[in-house]
Nucleic acid binder design. Structure first.
Lengths: 122, 122
DNA sequence: ATATCACTTAGAGTTTACTTTAAGTCAATA
DNA sequence: TATTGACTTAAAGTAAACTCTAAGTGATAT
C-alpha cells in the first residue's frame, strides 16, 4: 500500500508517516525500485498502534524506545513490560485529571442551564 | 498571598503564574507599592480552575477567551455556555481515545504477564 | 554596610511534534 | 513531447506552552 493510501486510511498526513519512520517508530518501510514506499500489513498494524497511543498523548520518545525493544526480540520482554506499566500509570493519572475537568465542565454547563451562575464566582 | 506561595500551593512555577497573567488568563493581580503581586482568594479560585482545565489539555487560547468573557459580565453568558459545550465535546473525544489506549495497554500488559506474546504481532 | 533573598521586567530560548519548503525523480496522460 | 501528479529527500520553519536569562529593586539578616 502506498503512502497516500495509508495516510488516508489512518487520517494522518504523508509527512507524519515519513516523520514517524525517520524517528524509528515504524519501518524502515520497504521501497520499490523507484524508491516509493510500499507498506505491508505488519506496517499498518504498527501504525495503528502508534496512532492509538499518540492520540492518548504518549510521547514519541516512549514509543520509539518501546518499538525498538520490540524489534530486538524476546530478550527485551521484561523491559518492555516495565515500560508499558510505567506508561499506563502516566496515562491513568491523565485520565483521572481529564475526568475531573470533564465533570467540572458538566457541572458548570448545568449551572448555566439553570441560571444559577450568580451563586458561583468561577 | 505572594507568588511563590501560590506557586507552591498549586504546584506551578512562578514563571507559569506570570505567564498566565501576561496571557490574560488570570489577574491583573494587585501589587503592593513595591511592585510585588498579592493574590486574593478570588485569584486563587481562578488559578485552580485554570490548572484543572490545563491538566485536561484545554488550550490557553480557549481559557483566555472564556475568562475574558467571564470578566465582561452577564451579557456574555450565552457565548460562554457555547464555548463550554464545545470544549466539553473536544474533551470527551480525548477521554474516549485515552480510555481506548488505556484498555489496550492493560490488555498488552496482561499478555506479557501470561507469556502469550508469541500470538500477537503488536 | 554588605550580602542574601524574594521579588520585578522584557525578551530570548527550549521542547515536542509535526509541517513546510525546495529541489528533484518517475510514470502516465493530453 | 510536455505537463500533471504522486512520490522522494534533507533541512528549515512553525505553534503551543512554557522556561530561562539578564538586569534590576527592595527588605531583612550579619
Amino acid at each position: 500500500m502506498q503512502i497516500s493510501e495509508v495516510a488516508k486510511k489512518f487520517d494522518l498526513t504523508t509527512d507524519t508517516l515519513r516523520y514517524y519512520e525517520r524517528e524509528g517508530l515504524i519501518g524502515p518501510i520497504a521501497k520499490g525500485k523507484n524508491g516509493i514506499r510500499n507498506y505491508t500489513e505488519d506496517d499498518l498494524q504498527r501504525i495503528q498502534f502508534v496512532k492509538c497511543m499518540r492520540a492518548a498523548g504518549l510521547e514519541i520518545s516512549f514509543l520509539k524506545r518501546y518499538l525498538q525493544l520490540f524489534d530486538e526480540g524476546d530478550k527485551t520482554v521484561k523491559e518492555r513490560r516495565e515500560i508499558l506499566v510505567e506508561q499506563r500509570k502516566i496515562l491513568k493519572e491523565k485520565l483521572d485529571a481529564m475526568q475531573e475537568a470533564y465533570d467540572r465542565l458538566n457541572y458548570k454547563i448545568d449551572l448555566y442551564d439553570k441560571n444559577m451562575l450568580d451563586k458561583k464566582l468561577m
